[in-house]
């Protein structure tokens, strides 16, 4: 009986709420140690590519290298933003910042040390790339990376318009 009461309360609540934002609000850290809520990574109105990676993951690094190369063109066309979420654990978290500068990457990189964002977005393994539209709605995600996969991704970004 209690269950039913609880259920009906929850049901009525869920029908009342209308929130479109599906980027969860989870605390992550930038490379300077500053805390950021993950939903604040979205620039309103601009699509966001969120790529989960780790310093020890070769395909991830390949994918990010490729996106880094193509990003200026993509941004001109679509205004898309890229943020890389490192799932490195405390063995390699401190290596992320020097690694990123050692590859010359200039897009934002955040650390998800406790894996909270990874779990909230159901990332099983890396690389895992998600695309959010300008309102923060998840429109596409992809696991793994093969050379050329970034073409499908940018096609999806263009399809948003």
């Amino acid at each position: 009986m209690k269950k039913l009461v609880l259920l009906s309360i929850l049901l009525s609540f869920s029908a009342l709420l209308f929130s479109q934002n599906t980027i969860p609000s989870i605390k992550v850290q930038d490379l300077k140690g500053k805390s950021i809520q993950s939903d604040k990574l979205l620039v309103a109105g601009k699509p966001l590519i969120m790529s989960f990676w780790a310093t020890w993951c070769k395909p991830c690094v390949k994918e990010l290298d490729m996106m880094f190369e193509k990003l200026p063109d993509w941004q001109k066309e679509t205004g898309v933003q890229l943020v890389a979420v490192s799932i490195d654990d405390s063995r390699s978290t401190s290596k992320v910042a020097p690694f990123v500068s050692g590859r010359g990457w200039d897009f934002p990189v955040v650390l998800d040390v406790n894996g909270d964002l990874k779990r909230a977005l159901n990332v099983v393994s890396v690389p895992h790339t998600l695309l959010f539209d300008g309102t923060g709605k998840l429109v596409y995600s992809h696991t793994g990376y093969a050379e050329g996969d970034e073409n499908e991704l940018i096609a999806k970004v263009k399809g948003l318009k």
Binding site: L31, S94, K95, A97, P98, F99, V100, S101, G102, G104
Partner: peptide, 9 residues
């Protein structure tokens, strides 16, 4: 650690 342009230690 040190992170500079094009170099990381």
């Amino acid at each position: 650690t040190y992170s500079g342009s094009g170099i990381g230690i």
